[in-house]
Amino acid sequence: MAHDHASHDHGPAGHSHGASHVHGSTDKKRVLIAACLTGGFMVAEALGGLLTGSLALLADAGHMLADSIALGLAWYAFHLAGRPATGRLTYGFARVKTLVAYTNGIAIFVIALWIVYEAWGRLMHPSPVLGGPMLAVAVAGLLVNIASFFVLHGGDRESLNMRGAILHVLGDLLGSAAAIAAALIILATGWTPIDPILSVLVSLLILSTAWSLMREAAHVLLEGVPASLDRDVIAKDIEGAVKGVREVHHMHVWSLDGTSNMATLHACLNDGVDPHIAVSAIKKRLATKHGIEHATVEPEFGQCADSHDEHDHHHDHDHAHGAPADRRHYH
């Protein structure tokens, strides 16, 4: 059967669009404030690192430089996401936030590797570090990073873009804490190798979180099934809960930006079933039971319109030879 355009739920977010818009507006302001705080102090910390000879301060300044750029990109991503869809970009710009989140994860990896490289050089060729000025700059940096962290922490933590921004600031916060610890140890003992050692430790701490962020963002970009959903379970639920639905196949479930879940599917209906009523019931079930607000449902009677596909040929062959029900194929 041809695609039922009436069954298409226009607008990726469904009725949740208003709530997501409010989140996006406040998150945009939070990210901009954090970007200004981070970028403003980055210059002072870089100068402090050069004057004191502290790699910990320079490393944290490097974090803050990349983070101020990343936060600026995150702000711009929120700005773009608020634009309406176009004829060429029918889902709008919401996925830009996921692209920025993925880019932020890569940036953290690059920064961490640079810090490790610099630390190795400092360990091989130790250089003097001025503990007193280093401590003063590190404490000021910690206060700025704490302020940025609390500004961002009140935002939508389900957003990959916001989580990427928080991760950057968290790395800065840990860097400042490490610089403070290194300065105190240098002042107490004069042992300067603690400076590069703690810098490497901070880098390793944030690498695992950066990898997690990149993996989740990549999963969204590849249109994988969201971790909170199971496509096969959803298909069987529709078959059992919606009256008149004989079978669900050709089902795809994905997320537009890590928060807005979407689905497309073919619904084989029993003879005599009103397709409009069935489609409405399926979409309601997807929204209320599984949190999928945007769905396109193609109702069918008899043979699937795409049964000429090789995969569907095997699907029909299995049923014709009495294959178990749990061997259904989902595309």
Rank of each mutant, 00 (worst) to 15 (best):
H10G: 04
A6G: 15
H5V: 00
H5S: 01
A6Q: 11
S7N: 14
T26C: 03
T26M: 10
A2K: 07
D27Y: 07
V31H: 07
K28F: 05
H23Q: 13
G18W: 08
G24E: 12
A2H: 06
K28P: 00
A2F: 04
V22R: 14
D27R: 06
T26D: 09
G14E: 05
P12C: 11
H23M: 09
G24W: 01
G24M: 08
H21R: 10
A13F: 05
H23V: 04
A2W: 02
H23F: 09
H5M: 01
H8A: 14
H8Y: 13
S20D: 10
D9S: 06
S25M: 14
H21N: 08
S7V: 04
G18Y: 09
K28M: 14
H17D: 11
K28Q: 13
H8C: 04
K29C: 06
G14M: 05
H23L: 12
V31L: 13
S25R: 11
S7E: 15
D4Q: 09
H3D: 11
V31G: 06
G14I: 01
P12H: 13
H10E: 14
D4S: 10
G11S: 05
D4V: 01
D27F: 11
L32H: 04
H15V: 07
H15R: 10
T26W: 06
A13W: 00
K28H: 05
T26G: 02
D27K: 07
A13K: 00
K29I: 09
S25Y: 06
S16A: 11
V31K: 07
K29F: 07
S7M: 06
P12Q: 13
K28I: 02
V22M: 13
D4N: 11
H10P: 01
S25P: 01
V22Q: 11
S7D: 14
V22T: 10
G18F: 08
D27A: 14
P12Y: 08
H5T: 00
H17E: 09
S25G: 03
V31I: 14
K28N: 07
S7L: 10
A13Y: 00
V22H: 08
D4L: 12
P12I: 11
V31E: 15
K29H: 04
P12M: 13
K29P: 02
H17S: 09
H8T: 06
L32C: 04
G18T: 08
S16K: 03
H15D: 09
L32M: 14
K29G: 04
V31Y: 12
V31F: 08
H10M: 08
K29L: 12
V31Q: 07
H15Y: 05
L32F: 08
L32E: 06
A13H: 01
A6W: 05
H15T: 12
G11H: 02
A19P: 00
D27E: 15
V31N: 12
A19N: 06
